[in-house]
């Protein structure tokens, strides 16, 4: 397996304040938020921002890390409501002001010459992959995408994906596409001329990474970890690496080669500590 081209240096990071331009709801749990930023946010596919509502005050205290769905003068984010911060984001009205810090971290590595991109998305993890798919299409390299969710309601922006990629959908309850998880669709697509990019639940990414390893196919994952700062000082976003020790998802990730991530250690934290019931 030849090593893929290196990642370009990331653009400078800035602290912006910007009003919300639009909030579009997708079903009950998902929202696309775009911000009015005439100066423009220059970013790479796979990078993220820390977002904090200026009206939030001190609760929720910390900004939320969110992968960019688009950049430019109306950068946008895909939100899934999972807690207080995302609930506040999901209720925000146009005009409400936010602090955006970014672009942060390292984006997806470039696709090697002569290879095809195979994107594997799980639910809200679709955001940085849709960004990548649009960028690949602009380069004339239409990707193949496997998009999985629990049910048809958990596939936000599937229509947008279908516009730019060959889309294969899986749902666990069979309400859309093939019944099962992303692996059922991955098998026949995992040929030796593809490179895989994946973002979604950690267990899904671990399974995708394992299949890619067996198939000898390069795999890049976008990690999601709790973090406080997003720019390399809180050291909260440590992930266990296969070379031993920890790396920080906010500066070395969120997009990293799957070979570096020790998923066994990572997912087993709760159990290893003996704290689960």
């Amino acid at each position: 397996m030849s090593s893929p081209p290196p990642k370009p240096a990331p653009p400078p990071r800035r602290a912006f304040t910007a009003p919300l331009l639009r909030r579009e709801s997708i079903g009950e749990s998902y929202h696309v938020l775009s911000f009015d930023l005439p100066k423009g946010l220059i970013a790479q596919a796979g990078q993220f921002v820390m977002v904090h509502g200026q009206e939030w005050g001190q609760a929720p205290l910390l900004p939320r890390p969110m992968s960019l769905l688009t950049s430019g003068t109306a950068p946008s984010l895909l939100i899934k409501v999972v807690g207080e911060g995302t609930r506040r984001l999901a209720r925000a009205n146009p005009g409400e002001r936010f602090q955006l810090l970014g672009p942060l971290g390292r984006g997806w590595r470039p696709l090697s010459p002569g290879k095809r991109a195979l994107l594997v998305a799980g639910g809200v993890g679709v955001a940085p992959l849709l960004y990548l798919a649009r960028e690949l299409v602009a380069q004339g390299r239409r990707p193949v995408v496997v998009y999985g969710g629990r049910s048809a309601q958990d596939l936000p922006l599937d229509d947008e994906l279908a516009r730019v990629a060959e889309l294969h959908v899986t749902t666990e309850d069979g309400s859309r596409g093939r019944r099962g998880r992303v692996l059922v669709a991955l098998e026949e697509l995992l040929t030796s001329d593809v490179e895989v990019y994946t973002c979604g639940p950690e267990r899904m990414m671990a399974a995708v990474a394992e299949r890619c390893r067996e198939a000898g196919v390069p795999c890049e994952v976008s990690l999601e970890t709790p973090m406080a700062c997003g720019y390399g000082v809180c050291l909260g976003c440590a992930f266990k690496t296969t070379e031993g020790g920890y790396a920080y998802a906010c500066v070395e990730g969120p997009c990293v080669t799957a070979e570096r991530v020790d998923f066994t250690q990572h997912a087993a934290v709760g159990k290893a500590q003996g704290v689960a019931p």
Partner: peptide, 23 residues
């Protein structure tokens, strides 16, 4: 020092907890 295993941080009302372990 490598520091503690994750999860290392979590938010609390108007505050946060950290257990970085002096990495």
């Amino acid at each position: 020092r490598l520091g503690n295993p994750p999860v290392r941080v979590c938010e609390t009302p108007s505050g946060m907890l950290n257990a970085i372990g002096l990495a």
